[in-house]
Design a protein around this nucleic acid. Structure first.
Lengths: 218, 218
DNA sequence: TCTGGCTCCGACCGATCGGTCGGGCGGCAG
DNA sequence: CTGCCGCCCGACCGATCGGTCGGAGCCAGA
């Protein structure tokens, strides 16, 4: 694979990521995509066997970037609670730097059955990456619960909310800014988001049972 | 409009909501939709002028259901903090009862430019509903801040996270259940979610700056 | 200079897209 | 019974869909 090939390949992925993030898999045609990449439509099929393969490659690339940021933290030498803090930092950073990723990922998570079972012979690469990330954070939670750092009952709940809120936040675009009354991506906003997430984390994971209203009020 | 017409109309909207929620606007064709509704394709165009109009009608119906649940609470006689609690309850209930709504709404929020500016002459009904809901919660926040019930700086942030996390949660389907290790929609899960959201709310809006980790632990 | 292998392209394929058209059918007012 | 009107349909339209094919241009090794 020489430079020209690699360049076209990368250019296609780049352009495709932007377009798929904006209008989704079904909403973007190969013609439009080719034109945006400065190629003929046939050339796309030289680099990727089919539209589905191209889309999966795009999703996989996004997940790979996230994984690369987030996964090394899991094995660090530190208490689970601190690793979880850093994990959140990394996740927020990853999305803040490339907000299109958040949109694409949000769509992709809900498009599973947009072409399910079909073609897609061994496109599991993307799925494997997603499973890696989810399994990683799940294991981290279990470690924290075993070590008594987290409240067992609500840990998955809290992290689920955390991930959802983060992805949603950076994907929300103008709607989010309208409610927020300010920019989503300024350095300050990113810092504020990290702080908010960590507060939520510590509150949700470490606080006393606090299950609504019964509690051991002796 | 006699009964038969009304029935077809409603049936179409119902079927369309389910399909659009699963595969998005561009992913569902009028043929498929007609077949699912038990009609000929031409008949769809008798009830709705175009595909875009049908889609907007579906989105508007979803937003109307949410608005209907959520809006009356704003004018109740109660402290802002309590109204916000009830607002969250209503939002969670609305999505929990019809989880397809959450998916559709999540997609719709990010599909604005899927057909932007185009056809769509006066389809603002959906947009108006959305603006109503967002303005309503924004006003409630302002009331709470003026009354000193909320911390002014972070209120919009917190509510943005709240809405995002709630929609994401109920839209997340199997991916969410995988991370959670259990069902999303059981009565217990819904209760737990409400509790979690309210905790987050009170912590985020009312607590002291709460710089992470000091705490009274002697 | 010839040759094999790449990257790329224009032209073309059958299928499907959103949308239109003319008419069939049934109930209801006259 | 007749005429009209609202609901529905099959057949059809041009445009676009994802994908294929044969070859043009180019560079490397002989």
């Amino acid at each position: 694979m020489n430079d020209a090939t690699a360049n076209s390949h990368a250019k296609i992925l780049e352009v495709a990521e932007a377009l798929y993030a904006r209008r989704g898999f079904a909403g973007v045609g190969m013609r439009e995509l080719a034109e945006a990449a400065g190629l003929g439509k046939s050339s796309l099929f030289h680099h990727f066997r089919s539209k589905v393969q191209l889309y999966l490659a795009v999703v996989e690339r996004v997940l790979a970037r996230v994984e690369e940021r987030v996964q090394p933290i899991l094995t660090a030498h530190a208490p689970a609670a601190e690793r979880l803090d850093r994990w959140i930092d990394a996740l927020v950073d990853a999305f803040a730097e490339q907000p299109a990723s958040a949109r694409l990922l949000l769509r992709a998570l809900f498009e599973e059955d947009e072409f399910d079972a079909a073609d897609w012979p061994e496109g599991q690469a993307a799925e494997r990456r997603l499973a890696n990330v989810l399994d990683g954070i799940t294991r981290l939670l279990q470690q924290g619960m075993r070590a008594g750092e987290f409240r067992a009952a609500s840990a998955p709940h809290v992290v689920q909310t955390l991930i959802g809120a983060t992805i949603y936040h950076f994907a929300s675009g103008e709607i989010g800014e309208r409610l927020l009354g300010g920019p989503l991506l300024s350095a300050e906003a990113v810092r504020a988001r990290k702080a908010e997430m960590k507060q939520f984390l510590h509150y949700g994971l470490a606080a006393r049972p606090a299950s609504s209203d019964e509690g051991g009020q002796s």
